[in-house]
Amino acid sequence: MNLDLKQLPHAKQLFKQLNSGTHLNRDHDHQLFSALEKHSEQYSELFKTLGFELVINTRGYAYFKTEKTSNTDTHKLTKKLALFMLLLFEYQADAGVDLSRFDQWRIDNELMTILWQKHHSLLETEDINNMDELKSVLKSAERVGFVINENNNYRLLAAVYRYLDLFEELELQRAYKKQANNTEQA
């Protein structure tokens, strides 16, 4: 493929953001994401040449794929975020709220307080010891593009699908295993 860099005027800015671990989201980084979608093949090729695998999900987010990281902070944060997502989605499901419209939820102080009060013992076991630390998890998540802060309230972005897909995938695996066990026993 011949790369015409004149067609990729956002290459520098995109690389800077993606290389810093940020997820780009269509509804937040609209201009950059559109540029990425428009010339997805060229950008993928360009970044591949530089040794990076670009993932663009049609549900509106993009990132550099990484399977390993030696950074312990990233490991800690992804675990804390997984727990927060589980607690938040369980709360919303119990309230009968449409889970697929998570990008419209407002995660305000009140909601965070409810989650903290309901699950503080579980959060503490994962080293989230008070409300401030819970907020700092979201603040860190904002830096890598999973949430956005709007007027002191957080809102989930499309990159959260990475966690939701994992949850569903694990559940599917469990169901398959169960089915296989049942078949074996029969």
Binding site: N19, G21, T69, N71, A82
Partner: peptide, 12 residues
């Protein structure tokens, strides 16, 4: 969650 399952991202 196994460490390898969870979403990761590049750290600059």
């Amino acid at each position: 969650f196994a460490d390898s399952d969870l979403p990761l991202w590049r750290k600059e």
